[in-house]
């Protein structure tokens, strides 16, 4: 078996493909699986593998570059850069709090118990911070 790093998206999902690419890559970046100095596949190659439009991948790369994760240079591969943890603003914290409440409400509405949510959040945070 190969230990090649992969990115998976679900084209049947209601979440747009571009958003899934950003989320998937961000998880790998935060967890350190994609470390500074690593290069990402070209927009063309990534789009072909995922079966999505070039612009979808290009936009996802730009989003991550705006967040400070990637350095983009025309004609060269996107490169992961060293990024200092930013200080979140109050607005950002409010926004994430709102999104989290909305997500928890949706999960509770589907019958997922709160205790499981707490466990899942703790495990995910530990995995990503390690």
């Amino acid at each position: 078996m190969t230990d090649t790093l992969t990115l998976r998206i679900d084209l049947d999902s209601s979440i747009p493909a571009g958003r899934q690419i950003v989320d998937g890559l961000r998880i790998l970046l935060v967890s350190g699986k994609l470390s500074p100095g690593s290069e990402l596949p070209s927009v063309r190659r990534m789009a072909m593998d995922l079966g999505v439009h070039f612009n979808t991948v290009a936009e996802a790369y730009r989003t991550l570059a705006d967040e400070g994760w990637l350095h983009l240079h025309h004609g060269r591969a996107a490169r992961v850069v060293c990024r200092d943890a930013p200080n979140p603003t109050m607005d950002q914290m409010d926004e994430f709090g709102h999104r989290l409440r909305a997500l928890i409400a949706e999960m509770l509405a589907k019958g997922i118990p709160a205790a499981k949510l707490q466990d899942d959040m703790r495990v995910a945070a530990e995995e990503l911070e390690s």
Binding site: T4, L5, T6, L7, R8, I9, D10, L11, D12, L28, L34, S38, E39, L40, P41, R45, M46, D49, L50, G51, V52, A77
Partner: peptide, 10 residues
């Protein structure tokens, strides 16, 4: 399911 997968190796 239309699960798509990309290799991140360069």
């Amino acid at each position: 399911p239309e699960i798509r997968q990309a290799e991140l190796s360069v």
